[in-house]
């Protein structure tokens, strides 16, 4: 992996843009290939040379995943507070709200894939590292509860550095909260699919992101419990090259399938067809 760590921003931080016209070309963090931005976009933001999956904007993710025009957002008004008066937190919130035009990193709503209805959640790593504070926890649980109420499968695309430390213990409790939501899905017999995207780590991976009936992952995504900086805890044990990636988790039995972006919609459609509509009523 050429990436520096989970929080690195491959498309911006390597300085390779410096001598290039803004946004016209993108250097791949996977193989250093320089691609015309429009070609990259056409290829679903996957490097044509090495298959590196660049991060997707929400609109690009929706365009690739659900039926055109089917997405109807819910709970968009849920927004963060600063319960700890944590240093710089309100400033960072305002900055990222302005940057992303979102109230927080997780967007949820109703949609269809191949005409089959689902409740969809998509996390955006660009909003404070996709970290899970009270808002992310609340929106994930509401999505699950909506899934139960409307008897629709819940599909969550995850991307998160973990619990949001700026909300302290409130954030930690979101792990229990979202996992409680998953227990509700179990009880109601409502299908739950997780799609792990780059990166999904720590508090999110150790809660609702690990609880899907089916767990898919995008190729090459960082997926793991604690940051690579704890590598020294391994006391001389050599870490495998793919440590804490989708492929590593797949090998360890934690992931059902590593699914390339161009196959994602079809794979989800296949799963939705398996679950069927009105699963609970049909019993």
């Amino acid at each position: 992996m050429a990436r520096g760590g989970w929080f690195s921003r491959p498309s911006r931080s390597d300085g390779s843009h410096m001598n290039m016209p803004e946004g016209l070309w993108t250097k791949c963090p996977g193989c250093s290939e320089i691609t015309f931005a429009r070609d990259l976009e056409r290829n679903l933001n996957v490097c044509p040379k090495c298959g590196y999956h660049h991060r997707l904007s929400l609109s690009a993710r929706l365009a690739l995943t659900v039926d055109e025009g089917s997405f109807e957002e819910i709970d968009s008004g849920v927004a963060s507070q600063d319960p700890l008066s944590f240093p710089d937190y309100s400033t960072k919130l305002k900055r990222d709200m302005a940057k992303t035009s979102m109230n927080d990193g997780v967007t949820t709503g109703r949609a269809t894939i191949e005409g089959l209805p689902l409740i969809l959640g998509v996390a955006d790593f660009g909003f404070m590292g996709g970290s899970m504070g009270s808002v992310a926890g609340e929106k994930v649980v509401r999505a699950m509860e909506t899934g139960v109420k409307e008897n629709k499968p819940v599909v969550l695309f995850t991307a998160s550095g973990g619990a949001r430390m700026q909300e302290g213990l409130f954030s930690l409790m979101q792990m229990a909260k979202t996992s409680a939501g998953a227990s509700k899905l179990d009880r109601a017999g409502v299908p739950y699919v997780v799609v792990l995207t780059h990166p999904t780590t720590a508090g999110v991976y150790a809660s609702y992101a690990s609880l899907g009936d089916i767990i898919l992952a995008e190729p090459g995504a960082t997926v793991g419990f604690a940051g690579l900086r704890v590598g020294n805890q391994n006391m001389g044990v050599k870490l495998p090259d793919d440590f804490q990636t989708s492929e590593f988790q797949f090998r360890c039995g934690m992931v059902d399938l590593v699914v390339a972006r161009k196959e994602m919609r079809a794979t989800l459609a296949r799963l939705l067809a398996f679950f069927g509509e009105g699963t609970v009523d049909a019993q």
Binding site: E72, S134, E138, M173
Partner: peptide, 22 residues
């Protein structure tokens, strides 16, 4: 108990599809 943990506010929902600026 755990479902209700957290502090957030509910702003006027923005009815636009996907996202628009607040």
């Amino acid at each position: 108990r755990f479902r209700n943990m957290g502090q957030w506010i509910e702003l006027e929902s923005t009815p636009q599809p996907a996202h628009s600026s607040l």
